Amino acid sequence: MRDLTVRDRAAFLSAPDALVVADVHVGRDESSSVQFPLGERDDLVDRLDALLAHYDPDTVVFAGDLFHRFDRVSDLSRRGLCELVTACRRRDTRPVLVGGNHDTRLAAATDNDVHDAYALADGTVVCHGHEEPSVEGHRYVIGHLHPTISIEGNTYPCFLWGREAYDGADVLVLPAFNRLAPGVDVNGVGTADVSTPLAPEIDAFRPIVYDPDSQETLRFPPLSEFHRLL
């Protein structure tokens, strides 16, 4: 964990010089029953651009569910993904696309290669997390679960870190980067509720919350202990 920092729903790994975001869900606003656009595309691009400016990473890995719709990709969603890729290239950062369970149309919607899993230079493997990883690593960074946590009546996006959680490897679960995507409250979640094979014992995972006001990273006890404190 020494080479890992978190900020605005993203993780930066200093050793491989890589930023990882998950569950971008481009097109989530199109699927909402609202009369006016929700500003999704500007929000995603502006926040990614701020992260790129802060970390100046060599690589950005998008860890699955880049699109929201399973069945089709609209022109608007296609342009939204293109804007994210362009934001990376504008700063000489290499974008890497990892497919998720929503991304049945991703390969046809982009000129970029689409990976099932992607191994970084230090042996960390980034995958979406909805299925067993196709690449072995000493650490896995995944999405898929959209974890949030409730503290004193307020809900925050959170990361989950499990030491040696999957086949002896550490696992980091990222929150959804798209702020319109619904979260899964980990306060009462159990292993039976978790839809990833990389978290067989979710109670052993520790929540991590980034506070944008203080710019502090708050680390909590494992969920098994955290539940007892509530």
Rank of each mutant, 00 (worst) to 15 (best):
H144P: 03
A10G: 13
S32N: 02
A204I: 00
V126E: 11
E136M: 14
R139S: 13
S224P: 06
I142W: 05
D23R: 07
F36I: 08
T93E: 00
V126T: 09
C127E: 08
C158H: 04
V126C: 12
S214R: 15
V135P: 03
S32D: 07
F159L: 10
G80Q: 04
P37C: 04
H102I: 08
D116V: 01
C158P: 11
E83I: 01
V73K: 00
E131A: 15
S195L: 12
Y166H: 12
A10S: 15
F67G: 01
V171D: 03
G143R: 05
D170I: 06
H138D: 05
L44R: 00
F177V: 02
R206L: 07
S224T: 15
D103G: 07
N178W: 04
T191G: 13
E216C: 15
L44Y: 00
L66K: 01
G123K: 11
G190I: 08
D75I: 08
L180H: 02
D111E: 10
V126W: 02
H128A: 11
R28M: 13
V98A: 08
S134P: 08
V26R: 03
D3Y: 03
L174K: 08
G168D: 12
Y210I: 14
H54L: 14
E132H: 10
L84M: 09
E83G: 02
F177C: 04
R139E: 11
L84P: 01
R69H: 09
H138W: 02
R206F: 01
V194F: 01
L48T: 12
D116K: 04
D29A: 13
V26D: 02
H68R: 02
C127Y: 05
L19F: 07
R105H: 06
A107F: 00
T104P: 01
S150M: 06
N187E: 10
Y156M: 14
V73N: 00
N101P: 07
T59P: 09
L230C: 12
D116Q: 09
V61M: 08
P212S: 11
T110R: 01
D75S: 10
I151F: 11
L174I: 10
F159H: 13
Y140L: 03
G137V: 02
R79C: 02
H68M: 05
D193C: 05
G129Y: 07
P95M: 04
A53I: 10
L230I: 09
V189R: 05
L174M: 09
L81Q: 01
L52K: 12
R163V: 14
R41Y: 07
C158A: 12
F36M: 10
P133W: 06
G190P: 08
L174V: 09
G153W: 09
R94C: 11
S33H: 09
A176M: 10
R163S: 13
I151S: 05
R28E: 07
A169I: 12
T191M: 01
D111I: 05
R219N: 11
S74F: 00
